[in-house]
Write a protein that binds this DNA or RNA. Structure first.
Length: 483
RNA sequence: GGCGGCGUACCCAAGUGGCUAAGGGAGAGGUCUGCAAAACCUUUAUGCAGCGGUUCAAAUCCGCUCGCCGCCUCCA
């Protein structure tokens, strides 16, 4: 499979450090505020990478950290008038609750910076000993000019960066680009004992320490949002490679941003939508589908309209599942082939390979989803020909199973249609319960038997106004939630 | 200013050298239906921001122009 590597700027054939095993580290969040849909994108993308690689048979280890000590957390604690570790706990809990609601799995290891202070100090000490870092006023800085490869990830050189100069002047630094490995703490700030006095870790060092501990000196994939390329990941490379003398990461992967009116969604612009507020209007599966319907490196424009389209697409899937179910439960004793049977057989025969080809090409989930809907269209056409018999049953079952299998890798399409409509009723605040709907359908059935079309249509209309659509089929009348 | 990315139909979006340019949504017409819905069919890019070049062949490679965005400060 091929993965786009930010380090080389190219798609490269994926070769893990150790055959059959993949070790991945993704930068999680700093727990100081609510999570927005951008955080969800990153979490979904890396979750899908894991799911797909496990599907391919790799032994996969996934580490995702929490930054639980940081200036923003300290500031937030002041604002909220609570202790810094209470802030961290509060937003860590919230993160879990959001991700659980979204149906995103946990990583295998979820380390926290404050649980790795010892490891962090060891690395900082090592970097000082090796001459890559220096102490000043109780803080320790990494000296970027000592690391000749500095800038190789973000593709910039020190001079260019200094020319752009929006960097605060700090007298203690030898070079303005030098960054803190260890920060001396002021009175009243959280701190840990260190060889340089009381202080706390800088932002970047925790990821070097935690990935080293849980994944080793060189591991396969390191990811995060594209905004982490510089300075965070650049600094991680500098620290880690200076410390171990070995290559840090084989493949750097970065997800694109979510935009609103074409602008990056961010806290400072105030144009962000939290996961919770979106979950009030849309089901979790809709959000996951929406995030996977565009390639992970491209920007995605966020809007209710986009989510509604995702919802309509998912509904098309579940509608097809219902149709397959209806077909399988009908009398299939006659032998009759459906429309374009050959086309369906051909497509089904190569469907799994097409899915893998798409995913093997830098996790092209958008293409994979396109393939899924292509199969759905061909199946629908086949069933339109009113097939019957053993072969038709087997073909339909195979389509159903293939769709389920690939959907499962993408963490979508993994419910029953009944569960889907139940979820939609909740999120769309349908005024009726399922029992209400069934009794209305029953009432209408009687009217239809009496050919009282006016009464039957009145019930249809009444339900439609509540957002329920009726479908008369030969098996009886079914209902759906209108998108 | 430095570096990077993007511009494909009405909207979203895949495709990065060679079959009729995937797929979803919206619209229009049709088949089916008591009426609907769903589904299917037809229709909406001889065309991929514009111009020029390389090539037997380009949306895809190269150059320029225009437009949009991102990073260079915390950020997924």
């Amino acid at each position: 499979m091929r993965i786009y590597n930010t380090l080389t700027g190219k798609k490269e054939e994926f070769v893990p450090v150790e055959a059959g095993k993949v070790r991945m580290y993704a930068c999680g969040v700093t727990v100081y505020d609510h999570c927005h849909i951008g955080h969800a994108r990153s979490a979904v993308v890396f979750d899908i990478m894991r799911r797909y690689m496990k599907y391919k048979g790799y032994d996969f280890k996934y580490v995702r950290n929490f930054t639980d000590i940081d200036d923003k957390i300290i500031n937030r604690a002041r604002q909220e008038g609570i202790k810094w570790d209470e802030v961290a706990k509060k937003y860590t809990d919230e993160y879990y609750s959001d991700m659980d609601s979204l149906g995103i799995g946990r990583a295998d290891v979820e380390p926290k910076a404050t649980e790795h202070i010892r490891e962090i100090i060891d690395i900082v000490k090592g970097l000082v000993d090796k001459g890559y870092a220096y102490e000043a006023d109780g803080s320790v800085y990494f000296e970027v000019e000592k690391f000749t490869d500095y800038g190789k990830l973000s593709k910039r050189d020190l001079e260019d960066m200094l020319a752009g100069a929006r960097i605060e002047v700090d007298e203690r630094k030898k070079n303005p680009m030098d960054f803190a490995l260890w920060k001396a703490s002021k009175e009243g700030e959280p701190s840990w004992e260190s060889p340089w006095g009381k202080g706390r870790p800088g932002w970047h060092i925790e990821c070097s320490a935690m990935s080293l501990k849980h994944l080793g000196e060189t591991f396969d994939i390191h990811g995060g949002g594209a905004d982490l390329i510089f300075p965070h990941h650049e600094n991680e490379i500098a620290q880690s490679e200076a410390f171990t003398g070995k290559p840090f990461v084989r493949y750097w992967v970065h997800n694109g941003f979510i935009t609103v009116d074409k602008e990056k969604m961010s806290k400072s612009l105030g144009n962000f939508f939290t996961i919770r507020e979106i979950l009030n209007k849309f089901d979790a599966e809709v959000i996951r589908f929406f995030l996977l319907s565009t390639h992970y490196r491209s920007p995605i424009e966020f809007s209710d309209e986009q989510l509604r389209e995702a919802e309509a697409s998912i509904d098309r899937y579940y509608t097809t599942v219902i149709r397959i179910g209806d077909f399988l439960s009908q009398d299939n004793t006659k032998n009759k082939s459906g429309s374009d049977e050959k086309m369906l057989e051909d497509l089904l025969g190569k469907f799994r390979d097409k899915f893998k080809d798409a995913m093997d090409d830098d996790f092209n989930t958008a293409l994979a989803i396109g393939n899924i809907f292509e199969l759905i269209r061909v199946l629908n056409k086949y069933l339109d020909g009113r097939p019957s018999g053993q072969k038709a049953v087997e073909l339909s079952e195979k389509v159903r199973d293939s769709l389920k299998e690939t959907g499962n890798v993408l963490n979508i399409f993994n419910r029953t249609p009944a569960e889907w409509y139940k979820a939609l009723m909740l999120v769309k605040n349908i005024g009726y319960t399922e029992d209400d709907i069934l009794s209305k359908i029953n009432e209408r059935k009687k009217a239809r038997e009496n050919k009282d079309w006016a009464a039957a249509d009145a019930i249809r209309k009444e339900l439609e106004e509540k957002g329920i659509i009726l479908e008369d089929k030969k098996e009886g009348t079914g209902w759906k939630v209108r998108i």
